[in-house]
Write a protein that binds this DNA or RNA. Structure first.
Lengths: 204, 204
DNA sequence: TTTTATGTTAATCAAATGATTAAAATGGCT
DNA sequence: AGCCATTTTAATCATTTGATTAACATAAAA
């Protein structure tokens, strides 16, 4: 219970933590209030309802995970290789700071797909129109080994390799016996590895 | 409402569908009853409680996703390459038939990690002791380019590349405009692709 | 100091939800 | 048919849970 934050901020912080962990349906407003160290009524005083509070958290979460890399992949000056490198690095850094973010967003998408295509909708088409994706398609078109490859596989692979370890973290650490520090080192190692694997896939 | 199944079976089928979609907390027993076309009380008559019913669904789900490949990866007669191929193929086939399975299991792990390490615990250590993993480590040890690579990255990559598209399916289909058939074809294509990418990573 | 706006709390409400009960229906068995 | 075990239902209960209310506290403004 951090006294240096305002009640409103403490509520949002607690809500983010619990929503990220347990999802919307699995989180009770009373738990948020307790985690924030405030009276339950204050939650409704500041945020009107559980839904409204959730919307705010979700919007901020989506922005964080989608827009973290937007500048990188739209930079017209950098090369394809430079972009691949920058994307992987900045994404992994974001996820190390917010390890539950991917699981949270993907769970809520699965529980409520309609809601989501609407919410993300516009801010998602941009992926196919980024400088990165254009460079990728050009590269595939120019390389005879890649000419029959659906270019979509490549960014999907990068996201898979970056994100999945965070989603499967409890399992992964349990299997391998890694602690939190070791896990962070393990995924940090993957910054370079994923860049190299991706270059292999692209025959670079 | 399939009349050819017993009430007990219809309940389990409905429960599986809803739990897989909405998770434990997001599913109401009344919804299960309605989906199954039976009276709510019947659910408790056959399964005692929502928790007990969930346990059954979860146990079966875990078995399905963990033991689908157990024979393949423990086969002492097949080569490493053959195993990689078989694992990817059988896993993707399983997931095409059960597209919500990974999202379901991973969501519940995230919401309730303690519960899970206990539940999976024993049946998970086996991964590090399989024939596949041994062959993998031997291969890495024998190859100078791979000697400094933590071998764990490789099976993790395979699982990432296989599973993640199913977890991100709503997003993926939304971005690319794929329909269900096209998505299935897309992930089916990945059977061969992932095998090849994995072989690249292993310098095979 | 009184007043007023803002922040906070305890108590309570109403709806949702998991579960139970007691009665009714169903189907085999003699 | 009559009897018995099993299955199914409607009605109800008890608890949980999101939300509201009315009172109280605090601090700034007049």
């Amino acid at each position: 219970m951090e006294k240096d934050l305002s009640a409103e901020e403490r509520i949002k912080k607690a809500a983010r933590k619990l929503f990220h962990q347990k999802g919307f349906a699995g989180t009770r407003t009373r738990d948020i209030a307790e985690e924030a160290g405030i009276n339950l009524a204050l939650l409704n005083y500041y945020y009107r309802s559980k839904e409204k509070l959730f919307e705010q958290i979700m919007d901020e979460s989506i922005k964080k995970i989608f827009f973290a890399i937007q500048r990188v992949i739209n930079d017209p000056t950098s090369s394809l290789t430079e972009k691949l490198d920058a994307v992987v690095t900045s994404y992994i850094d974001t996820l190390i700071d917010n390890p539950n973010l991917p699981g949270f967003i993907l769970s809520e998408i699965q529980a409520n797909p309609e809601n989501f295509t609407r919410r993300i909708g516009l801010s998602v088409e941009f992926i196919l129109q980024t400088a990165l994706y254009r460079q990728l398609k050009e590269h595939c078109a120019a390389n005879e080994h890649l000419r029959n490859l659906n270019a979509l596989h490549i960014p999907l692979n990068m996201l898979s390799l970056v994100i999945f370890p965070f989603i499967a973290r409890p399992l992964l650490t349990n299997i391998s016996g890694m602690d939190e520090k070791q896990f962070e080192a393990f995924v940090a190692d993957r910054k370079i590895l994923i860049r190299n694997w991706t270059k292999m896939m692209l025959h670079i």
